[in-house]
Computed example of a mutant assay.
Amino acid sequence: MLTLQEMSDRLEIQELFARYAHAVDGRDWAALKDVFTEDAVVDYTAMGGPRGTVPEVVAFLEEVLPLFPATQHLVANMIIELDGDRATARTMCHNPMPLPDDGGLLQCGLWYLDRLVRTEAGWRLAERGEEKAYQVVLKQATAE
């Protein structure tokens, strides 16, 4: 049975993951930086992105996300392992992104692999990696 603290920690971590998704999709870079520790490492290499510090990854996102009319990160099925003021998590993510000029829909499926720490400001991501499940482009059917 979970303690009240464990339930609270799990809810706070789930909220942190939702804030991450909303920040990326809303292109709110200040909010995105706030979900990480100052020395966090982010590794997007499994899906073709960079590995680096939060400012480096934010610069990458600022450059590539305008290529897509929209993004939508759906995070679910979290497995969170708590260990006092530290935690690890594996979280499923489905991220459809329409391509410009009716070029179809890029669908990305992955798992986030996270290491978290409790800070004075609450839970923060100290490390975020990815494990690729799939990446496909769906094209619209054309009338012939």
Rank of each mutant, 00 (worst) to 15 (best):
57 V>M: 07
18 A>P: 02
46 A>N: 03
17 F>Q: 15
58 V>W: 07
10 R>N: 08
16 L>H: 11
40 A>V: 07
106 L>V: 02
122 G>Y: 00
54 V>F: 08
108 C>H: 00
98 P>Y: 08
143 A>S: 13
29 W>T: 09
132 K>A: 13
109 G>Y: 05
43 D>Y: 02
41 V>L: 09
97 M>H: 04
15 E>W: 05
51 R>S: 07
72 Q>R: 14
9 D>S: 12
88 T>M: 03
60 F>M: 01
143 A>T: 13
126 A>K: 12
69 P>D: 12
37 T>S: 13
19 R>P: 10
96 P>Q: 09
98 P>Q: 09
137 V>K: 13
115 R>I: 03
26 G>Y: 01
106 L>H: 02
90 R>I: 07
92 M>D: 02
127 E>H: 15
62 E>R: 03
53 T>R: 11
105 L>K: 03
129 G>D: 07
77 N>P: 03
49 G>N: 05
78 M>C: 03
33 K>I: 04
134 Y>M: 00
69 P>V: 08
20 Y>A: 10
52 G>A: 01
90 R>E: 12
45 T>L: 05
142 T>R: 15
20 Y>M: 14
44 Y>L: 13
122 G>H: 04
117 V>M: 04
80 I>N: 04
141 A>I: 07
82 L>G: 01
67 L>A: 15
114 D>E: 08
109 G>H: 06
108 C>I: 13
142 T>E: 15
29 W>G: 06
85 D>Y: 01
63 E>H: 11
123 W>E: 07
88 T>K: 12
129 G>R: 06
29 W>I: 11
99 L>N: 11
81 E>G: 01
138 L>I: 11
90 R>G: 02
27 R>V: 00
15 E>L: 12
6 E>P: 08
122 G>T: 07
86 R>M: 03
23 A>T: 11
130 E>N: 10
61 L>H: 00
101 D>K: 13
136 V>E: 14
10 R>P: 02
120 E>Y: 01
113 L>Q: 07
104 G>R: 08
139 K>Q: 15
128 R>L: 06
143 A>Y: 09
21 A>F: 09
107 Q>H: 06
57 V>F: 07
5 Q>V: 14
66 P>M: 12
52 G>H: 01
16 L>F: 11
32 L>Y: 02
11 L>K: 13
95 N>Q: 08
101 D>R: 11
26 G>F: 00
32 L>G: 09
106 L>C: 04
120 E>C: 02
116 L>M: 08
69 P>W: 06
77 N>R: 04
65 L>P: 01
103 G>T: 05
76 A>P: 02
134 Y>C: 00
23 A>E: 13
124 R>G: 03
63 E>D: 14
21 A>E: 07
72 Q>K: 10
42 V>A: 07
135 Q>Y: 00
83 D>P: 00
114 D>H: 06
121 A>L: 10
108 C>V: 11
40 A>G: 09
74 L>A: 12
52 G>R: 00
39 D>F: 05
2 L>T: 15
100 P>C: 10
